[in-house]
Nucleic acid binder design. Structure first.
Length: 462
RNA sequence: UCCCGGGUAGCUCAGCCGGCAGAGCAGGUGGCUGUUAACCACCCUGUCGGGGGUUCGAAUCCCUCCCCGGGAGCCA
């Protein structure tokens, strides 16, 4: 008999049907004449209830069906006479693939703290919580492709290893094949990377944006969706050293088009989660109360608040809130300022635009006022910046001037300037940190809980 | 990197102005005719994060290192 997945049994099973099901034991409850097993196979939030009468031959194998054991059960699907579940399987036979010693198996029937589960990263996906998170993550990943593909965006694969070190997006990991025990040195005692594998100092990418730009300037609308690496010694619940980033880039587009895309994108993802991940969100809502179906509905429907950086500063200045950091035009918004805007003033996502050029990257397009750039950040409650984007500077003279001012070395960047020399055009894009999105949607308070194997300073165990 | 708070049984935590190492849960055994984080009874469980110091005596006080969490900076 072919095995069925629990999700399918619960949604389209017929009573009286013979079924075979494989999964891991969550709990076992026994009394004299009857025993129950809650079985999970990862396909859905819900467990399948197995009923094992004492007279069934399967009951002889019950003592090996401890929490965590992998088993196959065959039997008849029945309507459950008791509260709590619609269906159950009356089991005639159980096969044990692998038992789990109840003395040493770390997962108990009871709840565990997220901190403890982080120490057993290889087993935590077996919990309700992490099952829900990783299913939500999958739905979102699929929805990202669905959104862009349905709009004719081309998925491009920008490099993981790069020689560009000038994106100003954080510290870089070096990629090298040099013998670290005897590094070749130049005249000044610095490391001679011409002898390294690529003949240049190479890094793990911090962003695919610059490469996405040249692909947009030929294919029109493109997006990247891949891993990104940041080496800064950052220790917060919102930071990972290895994370996945989504970066659409559009030719013949300005900041308005960019914001519209970002907003529609964000709302599409919320809609998809409600459509496909409602039971997982409902579970997380019940246990952690940091996310809710109602909230996601609002997000999916309500337009975002738009506010310029200058207006945001005014809003903060007139606030009676005591801020730790100064509020002044020209200074970057601190976490506390962002949180005040999203949590207190607007109670939802806010798009802040037109930041002073001094606090933003060199490639962002200079506005006619010549003191701000066509940048936009989408801030969300609790997490802060989830999307950062801009219209890119397409004018060669303005761009080179800004590079000189920001002391960006022109070496390695000529190809980027070529895009402004030959067939330059307005273009725009943004970057979305995928884990921050998953974090926001699931309501998980620590970003390390929304990726199977979190990478962070001093953290690489699994 | 900085500022706080923690580290005691498998898990969650109490004990901390020095004087016998504790509870709940988990686990084991037995009981129970339909359970839902089942229930009832009994039993088992320790490098009190590591190292050093003070003291007759340290889980408790002091120093130091490590690890974890929260916040900040940095960043998406």
């Amino acid at each position: 008999m072919q095995r069925l997945r629990i999700k399918n049994i619960l949604s389209e099973g017929n009573t009286g049907q013979a079924v075979a099901v494989c999964g891991w034991v969550r709990t076992r409850r026994e009394s004299k004449g009857i025993a129950f097993i809650a079985l999970s196979d990862g396909s859905t939030q819900e467990n399948l209830q197995l009923v094992i009468p004492a007279e069934s031959s399967a009951s002889q194998r019950l003592h090996n069906c401890n929490t965590g054991a992998a088993i196959k059960a065959t039997g008849i699907l029945k309507e459950s006479p008791a509260q709590g579940q619609k269906f159950e399987v009356e089991v005639s036979d159980i096969e044990i693939f692998g038992d789990a010693d109840p003395v040493s198996y770390p997962l108990q029937k009871k709840g565990h703290t997220l901190e403890f589960l982080r120490e057993i990263g290889h087993l935590r996906p077996r919990t309700n919580t992490f099952g829900a998170i990783f299913r939500v993550r999958n739905i979102l990943a699929e929805a990202v492709h669905e959104f862009f593909q349905s709009r004719g965006f081309i998925w491009v694969h920008t490099p993981i290893i790069t020689a560009s070190d000038c994106e100003g997006a954080g510290d870089l990991f070096t990629v090298t094949a040099l013998d670290l025990q005897k590094l070749p040195k130049g005249d000044k005692g610095d490391i001679d990377f011409t002898q390294d594998f690529f003949g240049k100092h190479a890094y793990l990418t911090v962003s695919g944006q610059l490469e996405a730009e040249f692909l947009a300037m030929s294919l029109g609308n493109v997006y990247t969706f891949g891993p990104t690496f940041r080496a800064e010694n950052s220790n917060t619940s919102r930071h990972l050293s290895e994370f996945w980033m989504i970066e659409p880039e559009m030719a013949f587009a300005d900041l308005k088009d960019d914001m519209q895309l970002a907003e529609e994108f964000f709302r599409f993802l919320c809609m998809k989660i409600l459509e496909k991940g409602a039971s997982d969100i409902a579970f997380l809502e019940k246990f952690y109360r940091n996310t809710s179906i109602a909230e996601l509905k609002t997000l999916a429907e309500k337009p975002f608040v738009h506010i310029s950086y200058t207006e945001a500063i005014k809003e903060l200045e007139k606030s009676k809130e005591k801020f730790e950091f100064p509020v002044k035009w020209g200074l970057d918004l601190q976490s506390e300022h962002e949180r005040y805007l999203t949590d207190k003033v607007f109670k939802g996502p806010v798009i802040v635009t037109d930041y002073p050029k001094e606090i933003k990257a060199f490639y962002m397009r200079l506005n006619p006022d010549e003191i701000t750039v066509a940048a936009m950040d989408i801030l969300v409650p609790k997490i802060g910046e989830i999307i950062g984007g801009s219209q890119r500077e397409e004018r060669l003279e303005v761009l080179t001037e800004r590079m000189r001012h920001a002391e960006i070395p022109f070496e390695n960047m000529e190809w980027y300037l070529d895009l402004r020399r030959y067939g330059s055009a307005p273009h725009a894009g943004f970057g979305l940190g995928f884990e921050r999105l998953v974090q926001y949607i699931t309501g998980m308070s620590n970003i390390r809980d929304v990726i199977p194997c979190p990478r962070a300073p001093q953290t690489i165990k699994f």
